[in-house]
Amino acid sequence: MAKKVLRELRLNRDWCKGCGICVSFCPKNVLELDSKDKVVAVRPEDCICCMLCELRCPDLAIEVLTDQESDNE
């Protein structure tokens, strides 16, 4: 089956309130809060596209955009 690969982590900093739910529950520690208490992706290359941040974000501020990795690579 084709694997999902990350195209873009779209973080809406205007909507983010910095609760830190995405940061704490990310299994790969991709996200952090910056000095303004807003979410930033510090290790996007580690993202496994589990979508948990997008699903749990109470501010609907995260979108995980993915591509399908082709099998014949």
Partner: peptide
């Protein structure tokens, strides 16, 4: 109407998220 009026970390936002999905 976003960002919404709920407090940071309010579970109601997550429920809205689940419902919309």
């Amino acid at each position: 109407f976003f960002p919404h009026m709920w407090c940071p970390g309010c579970g109601h936002g997550t429920i809205l998220n689940s419902l919309i999905r």
